[in-house]
Amino acid sequence: MSTVVHPTPAPPADWRASCAPGHGRTSFAFLDEGAKREIRRRMLKAVAIPGCQVPFGSREMPIARGWGTGGLQLTLALIGPEDVLKVIDQGADDSVNAVSIRRFVTRVTGVRTTTDTPAATLIQTRHRVPEEPLRPHQILVFQVPIPEPLRLVEPSEVETRRMHAEADYSRMWLYLYEDIVTYGEITIGARYPVLVNRRHLMDPSPIPRWDVARLNRNPALMLFCAGREKRIYALPPHTLVEPLEFEDFGFRTESFAGRRCMHCGSTQSFLDEIIAEAAGRRRYACSDSAFCQKTRKAGGGLTHRPADGGRTP
C-alpha cells in the first residue's frame, strides 16, 4: 500500500513566543475561525470541480478591494506556523504591493518568508507564475481581479452562469473568430481564456500568455480567488488546461526573440520592457526578480524547461 507523507517541516522555534498576546485584538491569521472554515469549505469544492467558480462570503480586509483581498483571504485560511511564504507582484518580491501583503501576513501569523521559489510552501502571486518549476507540495495562490472569462462577451452574471452550466462557450469562440477576421490575429494579451478538464472555461487571472502553458498539468495545486467578486476556483495538480485556439490560428506566447535580460542575460524568462532614457531606448529585465538573482549567482547558467512549452517557433 502506498503511503503518502504530508510534508510538515518543523516550525521556527520561536513562533509561539513571537505571537505574544496584548499586541492587538486580532486572532491568528487575522480572519476569525468561522470565516476560515467557510473559505476552507469553498476551497475544497473548488478543487473538486476544477475551473468552476465557487461563490464565498468574501470578508473586508485591511487592504483595498482589487489589491489582492481574494488571494490574501485564501493565504490566511491556508497558512500555518510551518509554512514558508513567498509573495510576488508582477513576478517581483519587492514590489510595493507584495511587500505590503507580506508584511501584513507575517504580522498576523509570524511565519517565515522567502524569495526563493523552491523554498516556499505557499506562494501568493499577482499576474505571474514563477519561472522556476513548482513542486508537488507547493501551493500557488493567485490574486484575481475578474474571475469570469465570459465577462469579455457578456456582462450579466445570470447569463454567464447559464453559459457555464450548459458549457456553451460559443460566444467566446465567436469573439476570437471575429478578432481574427478584424485583425488577422487573436489580440488577447494577458488573461487568455483556458478550458479546464475539457469542461469549464476559466480566467487564468491576468498572467501573460507566456505563463499559460505552465498551468497545464502542473504538479502543484493552484488556487484562485477574487475578493471583490467573491469567487474561488482551483486547478488541482496534473489538470488538463488548454488555451482556446483554432487549428489554423494557434495560441502564441509573447515573443522576446533576440532580447535578453540586462541583469542576468537570460533569454528564457518573461522580460519587462524598460524605457531606459529620455531618448526612449528600450532595455529588458526579468519580470521574476528571484529567478533573475539566482541566474546571476549561477553565472547565467540556471536552466529550466521552456516556459512556452515549445509553442513559439
Binding site: 503518502v4 504530508h6 510538515t8 509561539r16 513571537s18 505571537c19 505574544a20 498576546p21 499586541h23 492587538g24 485584538r25 486580532t26 486572532s27 491568528f28 491569521a29 487575522f30 475561525e33 476560515k36 472554515r37 476552507r40 476551497m43 475544497l44 478543487v47 473538486a48 485591511p62 485560511a77 491556508l78 497558512i79 500555518g80 506556523p81 501584513f104 504580522r107 498576523v108 501569523t109 509570524g110 501551493i139 495545486l221 488541482p236 495538480p237
Partner: peptide, 28 residues
C-alpha cells in the same frame, strides 16, 4: 495595525487537518 495572538492547539490542528484534506482532494 493588528498584530497576532498565539493560536490555540485547536486552531493549529484545524489548520493542519485542512491542509491534509486539501492535499487529499487534490490527489484523489
Amino acid at each position: 495595525m493588528p498584530t497576532r495572538m498565539p493560536p490555540s492547539n485547536r486552531i493549529i490542528r484545524d489548520q493542519r487537518n485542512f491542509r491534509v484534506l486539501l492535499q487529499a482532494m487534490s490527489r484523489p
